[in-house]
Design a protein around this nucleic acid. Structure first.
Lengths: 191, 191
DNA sequence: AAAAACCGTTGATAAATGTCAACGGTTTTT
DNA sequence: AAAAACCGTTGACATTTATCAACGGTTTTT
C-alpha cells in the first residue's frame, strides 16, 4: 500500500530514503478509502489533511450562486489532493473535493508533515520540488487562460494532459477549462 | 538602499536577522537601476536573477502571434520580479519583464539565493512563506478567471489590489484581467 | 513650441461563448 | 428488467466580449 508513496518520494529526492526513514514515513501517512461521489473535503470545513492518491481520481471545485460547479483541479494517481489555501490559513475552504472514482489515499495533516520534514530533510526537499512544479503549472495554466481562445486552450490541455482526457468525461474537462460542455462539444466537432 | 530589503525580510521571518546576517544579505544582493521602458528580462533569455523591487513598477508579459501583449504579472515595491519557470528549468523565458516606471532593484541569482539559504536558514523560511502566498494568490486568480464574468473579475481585482489600479493605466489592468481595454472601459461605465 | 505618443472613450459590427430545451444512447441504480 | 441518472450532441437564440476605426484630451519627446 505505502510502496507507491515510497517510490514517489524516492523519485523526487536526490538519494533514496533509508529503511528507517521509510518506516517513519509509513507511520505518518494513514490509509483512507473513499467511494465514488464521496467527499474528501466539503466547503466550509478547514482542510486539515493532504492526500497522496494511490489509486482513483478526484476533483476540486467550487459552486457558484447559480449552483454551477467550477472545477479548479483534477487529481489522479501520484497527485496530492487538498486545498492548500485553507490548510495554510486555517480558514474554511471555498472548495469541495470529491472522488470521481473509488479512491485510495494516504493522508497526513499539515502539522504532521511539518514534523516529518524536520525528521527527514529529504521530505522538505521533495516538498520544495512539488511547490516549484506546482507554481510552474499554475503559471502556465493562467497564461493559457488569459491569452488563448477556448479552442487553443483545449488543444494545449489535451496535448499536455492526455491522462485527464481519458479519465474524466467531457463536461468535467469543459468546466476545468472554464467553458460549457456545449462549447467544448462544438469545438471538438469543428476541428 | 538595502534597508528596505532587510525590513522586508525581518517582517517575513520569526526573529530578526543578526547584524552579521544583515551584512551577508547585503553582499549577496546587487543594486540595479532600470529606466522606464527598459527590459529586466527579454523573451528568449534564461532568467538568471530575481529582483526585489525597492522602488518603481514593472510588468511581466508575453507577446502572441498577433503582437498583442498579455500581462501575466505586475510588480511594485516589495514584490519579487522574475520568471520562476525559466529560473528553475533554465529554459529560455516566454516572457518579457520591463519597467513601467524608473525602477530600483536588488537582484540575486538563483544559485546565490540557494547559497544564502544554506548560510541563513531564516531566508529559507522566508522563501517558503513567499511560495505559499504566491500559490494562494495564483489559485485565487485562477478561480476568479474561470468562474467569474469580466465585470466581477474587475471588481474583485479592484477590491484586493487597489495599489495596482492607482499605479498602472487602465489598458494594462485590462490585459492583466484578460480582457480588452474597450471592454474594461464599458464595464466601468455601466457600474 | 510643435510633434508625437499615450490614454480612455465611443460607435458600429463581428465573433465567441453561454443558455435553454430536447434527443438518443449509454451506464448505473433500484 | 425497469427506471433513473448520466453523457454528449444539436438547434435556436441571447449575451458577452472582441475588433476596428475614430475622437479629443493629456503627457512626453523632440
Amino acid at each position: 500500500m505505502h510502496d507507491k508513496l515510497i517510490t514517489y518520494i524516492n523519485q523526487h529526492i536526490s538519494s533514496n530514503l533509508t529503511t528507517e526513514e521509510e518506516e517513519l514515513v509509513k507511520t505518518f501517512f494513514k490509509y483512507k478509502k473513499i467511494r465514488k461521489k464521496q467527499y474528501f473535503l466539503q466547503e466550509g470545513e478547514v482542510c486539515k489533511n493532504v492526500g497522496f492518491v494511490v489509486s482513483g481520481a478526484l476533483r476540486l471545485y467550487s459552486v457558484d450562486d447559480k449552483g454551477i460547479e467550477h472545477i479548479a483541479q483534477l487529481y489522479i494517481e501520484n497527485y496530492w489532493a487538498g486545498d492548500r489555501e485553507s490548510s495554510i490559513t486555517l480558514q474554511p475552504s471555498a472548495y469541495n473535493i470529491d472522488a470521481w472514482e473509488d479512491t485510495e489515499l494516504l493522508i497526513i495533516s499539515r502539522a504532521e508533515m511539518l514534523d516529518l520534514t524536520e525528521k527527514i530533510p529529504a521530505i522538505l526537499q521533495m516538498l520544495r520540488l512539488m511547490d516549484e512544479r506546482n507554481a510552474i503549472a499554475n503559471q502556465r495554466r493562467l497564461k493559457s487562460t488569459i491569452s488563448n481562445t477556448a479552442e487553443k486552450r483545449y488543444e494545449e490541455f489535451a496535448e499536455h494532459h492526455p491522462q485527464f482526457i481519458q479519465r474524466f468525461p467531457q463536461h468535467i474537462i469543459a468546466s476545468f477549462l472554464g467553458i460549457t460542455k456545449e462549447t467544448l462539444s462544438r469545438i471538438k466537432k469543428q476541428s
